[in-house]
Write a protein that binds this DNA or RNA. Structure first.
Lengths: 127, 127
DNA sequence: TTGCTCCTCACGTCACGTGAGGTGGC
DNA sequence: TTGCTCCTCACGTCACGTGAGGTGGC
């Protein structure tokens, strides 16, 4: 992951360096880098574009907020709303991931039959 | 998959329409469309770029050729070479797919703990 | 103080998307 | 014969890659 990518994520508003030096240099914390890793994971594993990733990250940030402010019991209605929203989003993502995994399994099975076929051709040649 | 994509694949030499009308219109056979499906599968599931896909397709085309010309026993040495090459390529692909599947499994497990956590928060709220 | 790193434009790339305008076959 | 489909440029887009040239902090 290059400098350019980090700047591009910042430009899109999905990654803000947690600190700047007085000279204007961007400082990335460990949490920032984990966020970068999350972005790349969502890109490569699920094939999401940066708009979709922005939506996922927004939701994850909000649920993290709820968890952090769990003491204040006053707004339990709003909290319930956010829990419902999170559950819907995560469940939806789970389904797409599950579908992708099944497709990958089918792909693997196909590769295995190819390998078996090639080995059979070898045997036929030797025998 | 749009017209533009088909033309682009043709431009790169990875998909040639199997026939043309006298007027110059491209005719895609069922085998052509299967090739397109293969291209998309390699793109979306494995994240290969069109250069890498070209290499995979070249190999698959050659192994298909070998299988088709299996009668002529004369060039058994060359055939063995191609079998070895194919086995290496398919085995390598199998490993990357396996790695991807394991990553997806880990991703699924993470989603499941998130779902469980949200449900626990619901229970805590109701109880 | 001197490199060196980081900075901001800005153009290039890959895999197409999307009209713009024109010819030719059911 | 008349639309309509397919054709070829050609510019736009997304997610960066890659220098070009300049300032500022160990």
């Amino acid at each position: 992951v290059t400098e350019r990518a980090l700047r591009y994520y910042q430009e899109l508003g999905i990654l803000e360096p947690s600190a700047h030096t007085k000279g204007g240099m961007r400082r990335y914390s460990r949490a920032d880098l984990e966020r970068v890793a999350r972005i790349r994971e969502l890109q490569t594993l699920l094939g999401l574009n940066l708009d979709e990733i922005a939506a996922v990250l927004r939701n994850e940030d909000r649920t993290a907020e709820i968890r952090a402010a769990y003491q204040d019991t006053t707004q339990s209605d709003q909290r319930r709303e956010l829990l419902i929203e999170s559950l819907a989003l995560v469940t939806e993502m789970r389904q797409t991931v599950e579908a992708k995994r099944e497709a990958l399994d089918a792909f693997l099975a196909d590769l295995d039959t190819r390998i078996a076929r090639i080995n059979a051709a070898f045997d036929e040649q030797s025998g």
